[in-house]
Design a protein around this nucleic acid. Structure first.
Lengths: 222, 222
DNA sequence: GAGGGCGTAGTACCCGGGTATTACGGTGGC
DNA sequence: GCCACCGTAATACCCGGGTACTACGCCCTC
């Protein structure tokens, strides 16, 4: 039987979680907390297996509450939930020692599976965030196999021609197609052709994503 | 409709996967491959959305096949499956560019959810491995919580409300208005209102310039 | 000299982004 | 109690961005 503490300032949200968890015969909700400090206090008192922790709460927020619970040496695991998968929240939460990070609009089964996983010592991270974590850190993982390509330049830009790289650079400066055409003495239609090719080659859906890529690859420096 | 290629040397295993996937009305199995080189060749030919890749296969193994598929520049995502969650496999697979790593004894729903996640560009890692990844790397994550850091930041962002800063952040992630609306549970018209206010307050002419500002002010980190 | 990659350019079309305006409920200050 | 601000939302409208397709001249390589 997995014991759970729900920490969320919204009564309806707590109710929803409680209904879901109580419908499972291997879980029970010990109690609820309406803010971070209450969560810390009740955890120290009741030692739940898992704390479902909201990030945004009045007073002590979920991140700081997590940090204190972990620091207490208690064996309680913290699973952070947020409506919003903003990186800073997640990074901060995981740094604080949380065993997981899920978004609230996940499927109920995902949440239940997440609780079971963290209760046994495993960890879970929402897929949307996992992607960003991997993008940022995959190349820092210990190498199990040889054959590392230490990318000369970024592979995502490899297939661009010189001219296309130039176009992408000025896109990164926020120029519109019209401005690019004027300043590079081109027809706007030509600019559009270049832009389309840049998007296709870099796998960018639109201009914004291409600009982000330009920054990420340091083609344009902040 | 998500198109999938199954790469596994065991016929029974392939059959099981095919049965499961074909039972879903949003997935279809394009074809099967019995080893790594076949997987690479068929992927180049058919461009599936997702490759379900076994690690252990005769000839070219799943890791090396993954590396070649990613290196090809194809937009196909690779989801690695293995019987054991041995770290070396996982690290190597993720380094090779895989979008996910799951163990074969996962629940069918987990596998399906994983396929759907990677097909949309997200990523998934088995909980047992996530734990080890976090233990090893959590303290390397970028620091900072949004809660306590009320940005002594850039004056150009000073007049933005909390919500508007959030909107700008996700704009910086390349989300379209439609995506912002969906993921933040807002109406698109509301998103447009927010975006317009952000542009007005930051003096940005359009979305692209706002994103550049987000990078310049480190609101979004490269 | 045939072919291929590249840079240039045009046209037609669609859609998402952005503006302008209005509105309404909640909250906090005075 | 009133007002200001915020977050939410809708509507109508315009225009720039992006796609698809076609085309042509230049240069290089086989």
């Amino acid at each position: 039987m997995t014991t759970v503490l729900i920490a969320d300032d919204q009564p309806l949200q707590r109710l929803g979680f409680r209904m879901l968890l109580e419908s499972q015969d291997d879980m029970t909700v010990l109690t609820e907390a309406v803010n971070g400090s209450e969560a810390v206090r009740l955890t120290a008192e009741l030692h739940p297996d898992v704390v479902l922790m909201d990030v945004r709460m009045p007073g002590l927020d979920g991140i700081e509450a997590t940090r204190r619970i972990i620091a207490s040496g208690d064996r309680t695991r913290v699973l952070i939930l947020t409506t919003f998968d903003l990186d800073e929240y997640a990074y901060a939460g995981l740094r604080a020692g949380a065993s997981g990070f899920l978004v609230k609009d996940a499927q109920p089964e995902e949440l239940l599976a997440g609780i079971r996983a963290v209760s046994t010592g495993d960890a879970v991270v929402a897929p949307s965030l996992t992607r960003r974590l991997l993008d940022a850190y995959a190349h820092h993982l210990p190498s199990g196999t040889p054959a590392d390509a230490p990318e000369a330049a970024d592979p995502r830009l490899a297939s661009l021609t010189e001219r296309e790289r130039e176009i992408l650079t000025v896109m990164g400066m926020g120029w519109t197609n019209t401005e690019i055409a004027e300043r590079l003495h081109l027809a706007e239609s030509t600019v559009k052709t270049h832009v389309s090719r840049v998007l296709a080659k870099t796998g960018s859906r639109d201009r914004v994503q291409a600009v982000i890529l330009a920054y990420d690859t340091k083609l344009v420096k902040p």
